[in-house]
């Protein structure tokens, strides 16, 4: 009997070994393509290292000089990275708040056994569609649609709603709204599907018993759906936030990389990209990346903690 037990034990150990072997490829790829560049980024951030024309300047160790430069105010009188961090968070919120509200609403509608909406698969595909388009293409499309001679202005002028074309791509309000709109359109389908999966994972008997006890829909939502959905909700929220901090392609393409107007739509990654443009300034870009990493980490921990604490 005892012998047999050992045999079983050994067998399970050998399975575990296979498990490790199977995940080796991932770790190799991760180490080469993610971990190594990350370490290199931190390393580069302590060096003066860029190109002036075809001449490579550096690498020369400069300690924390790059970080110091990053916090110096520019000619416009503010510290660029602070303004761009603010822009990034603001642009993310503009898109994310409606995204979560609408997605939550749709997820509730689709999962409701009382509504029992027909053709769910169809709607799910449709709302997910925008996510399949490359963000840069999407932005380019909006760039053409909303130009002063584009179809939107043509329609508005010919219908008599306005007399002269609106400069959608030159004004802060409209540029920020368009960026938020695009991010919303691209991501609300994805969020809806994730939240739906979360809601469907909740035991149906909970809803039934609540209904039998005479709970209103509002009560069911706040006392059953939300608390039980929390783990999924936190996941969706944090991934959206990290995605938001890394916002790049949409504003970059829509404003041609210049964060028009007055750098109000310049995001952190666009700033990073400016350093990596023609002068390939690995030192400064490295410093921005490291700060970005720290900010993302802090925000993630903070959000995770608060939502968890509320939940308890």
């Amino acid at each position: 009997m005892a012998k047999q037990n050992t045999a079983v034990k050994n067998k399970s150990i050998s399975y575990a070994r296979w498990g490790y072997i199977f995940i080796i490829p991932f770790f190799i790829v991760y180490a080469i393509f993610t971990l190594y560049p990350q370490i290199l980024t931190v390393y580069n951030s302590f060096f003066e290292y860029y190109r002036d024309g075809l001449t490579v300047v550096g690498p020369r160790f400069v300690g924390l000089q790059n970080y110091k430069t990053l916090f110096e105010p520019g000619a416009a009188g503010y510290v660029p990275i602070f303004k761009y961090l603010g822009n990034t968070v603001w642009l993310w919120l503009l898109g994310a708040v409606p995204q979560f509200l609408i997605a939550m609403m749709l997820a509730l509608f689709f999962t409701s056994t009382r509504l029992n909406i027909k053709g769910q698969q169809f709607f799910k595909s449709v709302i997910y569609m925008p996510n399949l388009i490359m963000a840069s293409c999407f932005a380019m499309l909006f760039f053409s649609l909303f130009s002063q001679v584009g179809p939107v202005n043509q329609f508005l002028v010919s219908s008599g709603a306005i007399s002269t074309p609106i400069n959608f791509l030159g004004m802060q309000v409209t540029v920020q709204t368009l960026i938020a709109l695009m991010n919303f359109l691209m991501w609300f389908g994805n969020t809806t599907i994730l939240l739906m999966a979360g809601i469907q994972g909740i035991d149906e008997s909970m809803f039934e018993s609540a209904r039998l006890d005479g709970s209103t829909s509002t009560q069911v939502f706040f006392n059953i759906t939300m608390p039980l959905l929390m783990p999924i909700f936190i996941y969706v929220f944090i991934t959206s936030m990290i995605g938001g901090i890394q916002m790049f392609d949409v504003p970059q393409v829509l404003t041609n990389g210049k964060g028009i107007p007055n750098n109000t739509s310049t995001t952190l990654i666009m700033y990073l990209n400016q350093f990596l443009g023609i002068s390939k300034n690995y030192g400064m870009a490295g410093a921005v990346s490291v700060l970005l990493f720290i900010v993302t980490a802090i925000l993630s921990i903070f959000v995770f903690r608060t939502i968890r604490a509320d939940n308890k």
Binding site: Y50, D52, V57, G74, A75, A76, P80, K258, N262, N263, Y271, Q274, F275, G277, I278, S279, N281, M284
Partner: peptide, 11 residues
């Protein structure tokens, strides 16, 4: 803003 752009673009 233009000056800041050049400052970032050309170290």
């Amino acid at each position: 803003n233009f000056k800041d752009y050049i400052r970032t673009t050309y170290p």
